[in-house]
């Protein structure tokens, strides 16, 4: 049975802060930080935005783009590191906001930055088994980075949602696989506001090992090579890691550029590779082939081999593309950013 993406939607908040503005506060060299991270600015959620509001906006875009009856959605799964409730699901609020349900299943998902792609895999399984007709799979975050920590320069906000089904598919998912191990490169303990990380340990044994192993295994199983793909999207914690990983794997800059967003909006954590895929779907032509590999600390990668279908042109322009959200922006200074991100308490 063919399973794939029936529709997609994305959302990025309008606010930005420049890396230069953050560096100024901590006495760091802005040029060195920008060059080191490959990020110029990042998105910031408005005071009244969180992962739920981002999930709703992206889901509404996905629903507007499709002709799917919301009552036919049988599963709602959102991956995030910033679900606003520790106990009470994000999925129930999103489903109510798109007028789906009540005949659906949901659970909040968390696996650092890859819970959204895991949601796609679960929806694929439910559709293939015949348990549901359509599943809503999203990756959304208002990412946390402690003031003064390296993550503060990159932790951003945004997300993308995919409707997974078997009818009217715009992108066929040919194959998916995962590569997972117990690698503690980045974590957040219960009741902690900000995550901790292993610094340089987040590189070779973590990001690169999982991204490269998952991608190589996919190409080995399918008998493909980088030249068989028109686009490739790799998780984007900063601008350097995905560029280096793609070069090691043999992909060109042209293949990764359309889905490469981190330099403009930062690392949207669970939204990162999902937004990259959404940006590719905004421009991909029928029969083109896409490879996507996510990465979640802790650690694992999900890899997808996707072929665009003829249906994509019918629904592509029904809602604004990711690029419109990226271009629509208002800058904050660090004082406003502190107010927005609750660096201080109200009296």
């Amino acid at each position: 049975m063919t399973v794939g993406i029936v529709s997609w939607g994305a959302y990025v908040p309008v606010y930005r802060i420049k890396v230069e503005e953050i560096a100024k506060i901590w006495g760091a060299d802005p040029a060195a930080i920008e060059a080191g991270l490959g990020i110029k600015e990042k998105s910031v959620p408005a005071i009244d935005e969180d992962s739920v509001t981002i999930a709703v906006e992206a889901s509404r875009n996905a629903m507007k783009r499709s002709s799917v009856d919301p009552m036919e959605i049988g599963a709602v799964y959102f991956g995030s590191e910033s679900h606003p409730y520790a106990v009470k699901p994000t999925g129930t609020i999103v489903a109510e906001a798109i007028q789906a349900g009540p005949n659906y299943t949901t659970v909040d998902m968390e696996f650092a930055c890859k819970a959204g792609t895991a949601a796609i895999q679960i929806c694929m399984g439910l559709v293939k088994s015949g348990m549901i007709n359509y599943g809503l799979a999203g990756g959304v975050d208002t990412a946390q980075g402690a003031p003064g920590d390296a993550l503060e320069y990159s932790a951003a906000a945004g997300g993308a949602v995919f409707i997974i089904g078997k009818k009217n598919i715009v992108a066929k998912i040919n194959h998916t696989l995962s590569f997972t191990s117990d690698t503690p490169d980045f974590w957040r303990r219960e009741h902690q506001h900000y995550p901790s990380h292993g610094g340089g340990f987040t590189g070779e044994p973590a990001y690169f090992n999982h991204i490269i192993s998952a991608t190589k295994r996919m190409m080995k199983i399918l008998g493909t090579s980088p030249k068989d793909y028109d686009f490739a999207v790799f998780h984007q914690p900063n601008g350097k890691f995905p560029s280096r990983a793609s070069k090691k794997l043999g992909f060109t800059e042209e293949q990764i550029k359309p889905g490469f967003l981190v330099d403009k909006i930062g690392n949207t954590y669970s939204g990162s590779s999902m937004l990259g895929l959404a940006a590719v779907l905004d421009i991909a032509k029928p029969a083109q082939r896409v490879l996507v590999t996510s990465y979640g600390s802790g650690a694992g990668s999900d890899c997808f081999d996707i072929t665009i279908t003829d249906n994509i042109n019918e629904i592509r322009k029904k809602v604004p593309p990711v690029n419109d959200y990226i271009k629509d922006k208002k800058y904050l200074d660090y004082a406003e950013y502190s107010k927005f991100t609750k660096h201080y308490l109200l009296h």
Binding site: D48, D50, V52, T53, R60, Y85
Partner: peptide, 13 residues
């Protein structure tokens, strides 16, 4: 779609 009221760290949003 936005948060309308959020009271402290314990209340419903």
């Amino acid at each position: 779609f936005r948060k309308i009221v959020e009271k402290g760290p314990r209340g419903v949003i």
